[in-house]
Nucleic acid binder design. Sequence first.
DNA 1: CATGAATGAGACTTCATTCAT
DNA 2: AATGAATGAAGTCTCATTCAT
Lengths: 225, 225, 225, 225
Amino acid sequence: MRKIPRQARSRAMVERLLAAGRDVLVTDGYDAFTTNRVATRAGVSPGSLYQYFPDKGAIVEAVADRWLDELAERVAASLTDHLGAPGPVLVRGTLEALLDALEDDPELLRVVATELPLSRYRDRRQALRRRVADIATAGLAGPSGARRPDPATAAWVLVVAVEALSMQWVLEPPAPRRGESVEEQRSRIIDELTDLCLGYLLGQPSAAAPTGSRVAPRSEDRENV
Amino acid sequence: MRKIPRQARSRAMVERLLAAGRDVLVTDGYDAFTTNRVATRAGVSPGSLYQYFPDKGAIVEAVADRWLDELAERVAASLTDHLGAPGPVLVRGTLEALLDALEDDPELLRVVATELPLSRYRDRRQALRRRVADIATAGLAGPSGARRPDPATAAWVLVVAVEALSMQWVLEPPAPRRGESVEEQRSRIIDELTDLCLGYLLGQPSAAAPTGSRVAPRSEDRENV
Amino acid sequence: MRKIPRQARSRAMVERLLAAGRDVLVTDGYDAFTTNRVATRAGVSPGSLYQYFPDKGAIVEAVADRWLDELAERVAASLTDHLGAPGPVLVRGTLEALLDALEDDPELLRVVATELPLSRYRDRRQALRRRVADIATAGLAGPSGARRPDPATAAWVLVVAVEALSMQWVLEPPAPRRGESVEEQRSRIIDELTDLCLGYLLGQPSAAAPTGSRVAPRSEDRENV
Amino acid sequence: MRKIPRQARSRAMVERLLAAGRDVLVTDGYDAFTTNRVATRAGVSPGSLYQYFPDKGAIVEAVADRWLDELAERVAASLTDHLGAPGPVLVRGTLEALLDALEDDPELLRVVATELPLSRYRDRRQALRRRVADIATAGLAGPSGARRPDPATAAWVLVVAVEALSMQWVLEPPAPRRGESVEEQRSRIIDELTDLCLGYLLGQPSAAAPTGSRVAPRSEDRENV
DNA sequence: CATGAATGAGACTTCATTCAT
DNA sequence: AATGAATGAAGTCTCATTCAT
């Protein structure tokens, strides 16, 4: 009704649909995520939906993608920001950024991680991982003090571990200690994860033996990493 | 058909259905997992299926549960086995056991982790985690040399991280290093995870976190873990 | 409820569905031929329909096929019956049989010929044509007095012409002559068609010149028809 | 865009739409004939289409009509041209004209005859038939040497038969004779159809049919044809 | 207990048509 | 007159579940 430029109108419609999609997902769950419901929630007719998305799956994906993009943006920004900083600061900063981002829309996180068939958003999720891992790899390869023999592997390890832990923290945090407030617990968990990362990065790597099963006291070997 | 005790017949039927369920899941995917198909694959009529499972979801759950139980058994066994062993041996042993278990039916792992709505098997998965975490907590609480202030949290951290990394390794391993064989890579990854765990357990806990308003004097509290 | 053998029950269901299909087609037209309507008319649930037909098109086809089969049967029978008879008798008999058959269910004929996309029943229709044409070709090749140089072509010509004329007669007969009853007209039309066929078969073929345009004054030749 | 008189612009638009309609019909088939597609193909918005046609059906009809009109024009012209000519020449000429006309746009013929619900263009088709039949009736009524008792019926018979045969020839011609070229076959078929027509027109009418209750003394009636 | 035909709610999607701009 | 986004009725088909045999 207003003088909304064509392009903008489309954009607005997409936004409405995505918002409705997120809403349905969060309040009704993935099983109730029907095209008609999304359309209704968006205050649109079912047909309209198909002018903007080829099919139902595309909407779910778009919702997930958007969320993941936001996440990636935040984390990557923080990571880049702290890139020069000393290890602990960088790690802590990144962890904080990640938790902040994940806690931004915990309900959506819950649905995405819990009800969505992973295949629906696997690619984007991997892209996120790779992006973060790449930055981290670069950071580790520099004069960071990290002793890991293979920065790429180290980045992979940390990214996967941290991702899982952060999500788990948001979705199902462990029982807090007696008398501990949530904030305290959160802060403590970040400490723990920081320790995890730094202990891994700065600790004595076990020698990178090529094949056989190592184990045992190879402390000497570790020197030459 | 005669001579089979009632109870045993039921048991056999359940087995057939579960086998069929796993089969459908693995070969056709979760989207094609229809009750009719499972029944057909089991050589049973769709009606019979409902004599043994209340609804479709129950079958999926049962399949996942069974798999997770097996997993839990193996890992717990290994963990208990090595309980007295020195840290590195225990950690390595557990990691190997976990990887072995996960690699036992990678196709099912893929479907479960990738296509199944997590809600379908969340409880059992948590049970597994908790079980492992409990044993680990106990171990850490003992004279293991671990310096973590809160064994429960430490166990949580390790369990979540290791679970995620193991699964990721089986499902989408990082690119191997140049000229590296899969076995070599596997072994190397186990080394890395071992380092991750030991670095975390044995490293210097960050007494005071530098960045945020992070609750400085918590060191004393930790004594009583 | 009764002791209807399994096989027979299926058969009965197919019959009901086909009957319902025909009914919908005839009373509501092809545009209103929806799967739900057919199911309802058959007193069945929409899902049941798909246990017997793979999709909507298959029902239409089955209805048309069945009708065409019946038609083919009747005409072929008549044709075979009269095969030894003198030309006029054979032709007349066949025409009568064809008209009888077409007039048996004129409403269905109307819908099939008028509203159905030809492609839905083309194959079966061609089969019918070919069947009749084959018998006719055989008849013409024998000592029938026919002077056609190429029996196959002659059969094709007659089959196509007679089919079109019969259908046209049933669907949109020409205006009857003054005071003529329908029966009289019908009989007259059969006379005409008989003449058409016999005139063609027994008349002087224009020389089978390979290429150029023949024509010429062949009026005398025709005296001896 | 300027300077185009209103009327002419409309005209041009109609033309574009019809052309697009024909195009969609021929290249995509009737099932894909959607208003949106036609509009797109015409480079017009779907809304505009409704400024020139009341609904989808009207476009199909218009396309078919236009084609049939052209057909009618050609055949009628040829028929009128040869009206004074001796029978064989007239018949041959008409047949050639008809085949020429039908072969002019065989793809459209195929779609129209094969995929279009006959009801979409029945009226116009009948008009064509009637028109041709009327001319033919007039011709037969004159001193043409035709011996048919009822020229109107004779015209009806020939028009229907020839129409069906011509279309059949274009759409699914019978197998050619050994070593026969398509041109030769075509020419031969025209010979056959000519024979069919002339044999019918000039042959001995079956005064009294042997079989049925065939209305014996109609000879007088026939005089006044 | 087994069977498997029947059920029927409801999901997704299309497309002819409208109408505000 | 043109546009094209929006509409929404309606159709096809699936599949978890039931129940008479």
